[in-house]
Simulated scan of single mutants.
Amino acid sequence: MGSRWLAQMPLPIPEKPGQLFDNADSFGMVFDEAWKRHERAGQHQGLSVAEKKERAMAECSEHPFMLSNPAMAAQVADFRIRLLGL
């Protein structure tokens, strides 16, 4: 397997310390948590789904998968929104 599947540089997340990986699963988990964190903080009130997605994506901007494949990361975010009914 290529280096794409190996752990990238660790990025700290207060709720889940440890390494993040350059793959869709890792990005999806981080995106979900960012979305939920915004909801809990009341930051989603009055926003469209597109605006909510944009805010969560911005919070994930340093994730290895977002850096290496931003177009696919956006598709993963759309999938997570549909799958989880976010």
Score class of each variant (00 low, 15 high):
1 M>V: 10
1 M>S: 10
1 M>T: 12
3 S>P: 09
3 S>N: 04
5 W>P: 05
7 A>Q: 15
8 Q>E: 12
10 P>T: 10
10 P>W: 08
11 L>D: 04
13 I>S: 15
13 I>L: 07
14 P>N: 11
15 E>Q: 13
15 E>I: 06
17 P>W: 04
18 G>E: 01
20 L>V: 09
22 D>W: 09
23 N>D: 00
24 A>C: 10
25 D>W: 10
30 V>I: 06
30 V>F: 15
31 F>C: 04
32 D>I: 13
32 D>G: 11
32 D>F: 08
33 E>Y: 07
34 A>E: 02
34 A>V: 15
37 R>Q: 09
39 E>R: 06
39 E>W: 15
41 A>T: 12
42 G>D: 03
42 G>T: 04
42 G>H: 02
43 Q>K: 11
44 H>A: 08
45 Q>K: 14
46 G>D: 00
47 L>W: 03
48 S>A: 08
49 V>K: 02
49 V>E: 12
49 V>N: 14
49 V>D: 02
52 K>G: 11
53 K>Q: 03
54 E>S: 12
55 R>G: 11
55 R>P: 02
55 R>Y: 05
56 A>E: 01
61 S>Y: 11
65 F>D: 11
66 M>C: 03
67 L>Y: 01
67 L>I: 14
69 N>I: 09
69 N>W: 02
70 P>A: 06
70 P>Q: 00
72 M>L: 06
73 A>I: 07
75 Q>P: 13
75 Q>A: 11
76 V>R: 00
77 A>E: 01
77 A>D: 11
77 A>V: 11
78 D>T: 08
79 F>W: 11
80 R>T: 06
80 R>Q: 05
83 L>F: 09
